[in-house]
C-alpha cells in the first residue's frame, strides 16, 4: 500500500508540482494540501499521515511553529521541511525533530535532485 503524505506550502503553484511529484515519482498517496501552519496542524490531527511536508515562510503560523506543535502531540511524526530559507533554519528544524530538510528551488527536472529527494525519503522511513 502506498505511503500517505500531506503537503503544506503557501504557494498553490508549487503545491500542484509537489503533489504531482509525490504521486507520480515517489508513489505516495496525497491525502490533503494546506496553505499555512494552522492547516498543517489541523490536517495532521485529522489524517495522521505517514509523512507531512512543511514550508517555513507561511502566513498565520510558520512552518517551524507548526513543526513544534505537531511533534508535541505526535512525537513520532515524520516531518520533512521544504523551504527556500537558508542559514540557521535547517539546524533549528532538525534539532526540533524534523526528519529532513529539502532546500528550494525544487529541481524537478534534475536527476541528481530527484535522487537526493528519494534518498531523503528513504532515510526518513529507514529510521522510522
Amino acid at each position: 500500500m502506498n505511503k500517505t503524505v500531506i503537503l503544506i506550502d503557501d504557494s498553490k503553484f508549487l503545491l500542484k508540482q509537489l503533489s504531482d511529484f509525490f504521486e507520480k515519482v515517489l508513489n505516495f498517496k496525497v491525502l490533503s494540501l494546506g496553505f499555512d501552519g494552522n492547516m498543517a496542524v489541523d490536517l495532521y490531527q485529522k489524517h495522521k499521515p505517514d509523512l507531512i511536508t512543511l514550508d517555513i515562510t507561511m502566513p498565520n503560523k510558520n512552518g517551524v511553529q507548526a513543526l513544534k506543535e505537531i511533534l508535541t502531540e505526535f512525537p513520532n511524526a515524520n516531518i520533512l521541511m521544504i523551504s527556500a530559507v537558508r542559514g540557521n533554519a535547517m539546524l533549528e528544524c532538525m534539532s526540533s525533530g524534523a526528519k529532513g530538510y529539502i532546500e528550494k528551488p525544487l529541481k524537478f527536472n534534475d536527476a541528481d535532485f530527484i535522487q537526493d529527494f528519494k534518498e531523503t525519503i528513504k532515510e526518513i522511513f529507514t529510521t522510522d
Binding site: 504557494s11 498553490k12 503553484f13 508549487l14 515562510t57 527556500a84 530559507v85 537558508r86 542559514g87 532546500e103 528550494k104 528551488p105
Partner: peptide, 19 residues
Amino acid sequence: EASDIIGEFGNNYCGLLAD
C-alpha cells in the same frame, strides 16, 4: 495566481543567491 507564482519564484531566486 500571478502573485502566488511570482512570489514563490522570488523566494527561489533568493534561495539560489544564498547558495
